[in-house]
Amino acid sequence: MESVTTELSSLLTNQSSSKSCPTVDTTVENTLFGCFYILVFFLALNGNSLALWIFSHQRGSSSPANIFLIHLAVADLSYVIILPLRATYHLTGGHWPFGEVPCRVAGFLFYVNMYASLYFLACVAGDRYLAVVHAVRSLKIRRARYAHIISFSLWALVTVSMAPLLVTHQTAEVDGVTVCLQLYREKASRKALISLAVAFTPPFLATLSCYLLIICSLHRGSRLEPALKLKALRTIGLVMLIYVVCFLPYHMSRATFILGYNHPDVSCKTRRGLSLANRLTSSLTCLNGTLDPLIYLFGAEKFRGTLMRLFCKDSTGMSGATSGDLKGTHESSVSAKSEF
């Protein structure tokens, strides 16, 4: 992750040095991107704010998965707040009117959210694996205290890795307008490939492996009823969908962009396509902020119960909201019913 940040330089030189291939953002593209960010902003802000509100009104000690999901919601909200800036950037024709510091913060929060989300989803997958496959043996290590330590350690790691973005010049004048180099203008350096691999591959493979092992365990037979197994598989599918839709396209596109953009044999049309793909997949990463609340909604019976009490004004009131693991499977088959 560290070299991702160091490769975002004042930049544009390599891309704009291509005499016959100027970077052109069409009005239609900018309008679509701007409207997209506005829509995602409202959906993600409401979804994650509601999730945190429900988390805060659940009583009792939190489970590890619950804690990881809370941090995931915080990561989403930290990025959601800068989406209006990205929307404005597009709706003003690719002009950044906010100055140097907001540009740095926008890039910083973009990467912090993306990689914090990746690692918190991996933590949730690891906790689910322990709870389902090693339910009894994992009791000693599946504790809230350890989940807090892991979560704050991940925040520290991601924040320190992305910190250079806050002290590096990130705006430039191009064709009479100010551009924020953090928005699709990253330097196409091959050294960034190492950062992409280190930042994305470990959490992706960890999540995939944990869920495959869970699926195998459910297939071999478990104490869960068939209907609960189906719910578990749907939750796993939703988490993997977030990876496939939000994160995998961006990292594949970035790798292709880095390898191909400055190659001497690449045509202007191909470079234009690579740049557009980079912009499109970058915008897809923010969709995780709208999809993550679905994990809580469809993967956690207790979360749904609290939500129903909130909107249906159940006679028991909000005080009847149950506490515990929003997304997990408890150590017994009875409590497992409310976790998938």
Rank of each mutant, 00 (worst) to 15 (best):
C35Y: 15
A227M: 09
S56A: 07
S209W: 15
T285G: 08
L183D: 09
S56G: 06
F98Y: 15
F204Y: 15
E339K: 06
L85C: 11
S3H: 10
L310R: 01
S161F: 02
Q58H: 12
N14L: 13
G94V: 02
H169S: 06
T26F: 05
A73C: 00
H71Q: 07
H219Q: 15
T306D: 09
Y261Q: 12
S195C: 09
G289H: 07
T31V: 14
T316L: 07
G47K: 04
I236W: 04
S195R: 12
A336V: 07
L45K: 03
L193H: 15
F42D: 06
S323Y: 13
L52S: 01
S332W: 10
T23Q: 07
R234K: 14
L284A: 04
G328M: 02
K229L: 05
V334H: 11
M114R: 09
G299W: 00
T256D: 09
L310W: 09
F98L: 14
M318L: 13
N66L: 05
S267I: 06
Y211D: 10
V24M: 06
N113E: 11
E173S: 08
N46V: 14
A131G: 01
A188R: 06
G328A: 07
C21H: 00
I54L: 10
G317K: 03
G107E: 07
K302G: 08
T270A: 14
G320S: 11
P102E: 04
F98I: 12
R279Q: 13
A87S: 15
K140P: 04
M318H: 11
I38T: 13
C312D: 01
T168R: 09
R104C: 13
M252G: 04
P102W: 06
L291S: 00
T5E: 01
L274I: 11
E29Q: 14
N66E: 07
P64W: 01
F311I: 08
N30L: 09
R271E: 01
L83Y: 10
N66H: 14
P202C: 15
G99V: 08
V179E: 02
G176Y: 12
P22M: 00
A125M: 11
T270Y: 04
V167T: 02
L238P: 11
A122Y: 00
P22S: 02
M252Y: 04
E7H: 03
A147N: 12
L193I: 15
F204E: 08
Y129P: 02
G34T: 12
W155A: 01
T92C: 01
I141D: 09
E7V: 04
L241Q: 00
A192P: 07
F152I: 15
L294W: 12
T168L: 03
A135N: 08
P164H: 05
Y243P: 05
V160I: 14
L233F: 07
L233K: 06
V167I: 10
L91D: 13
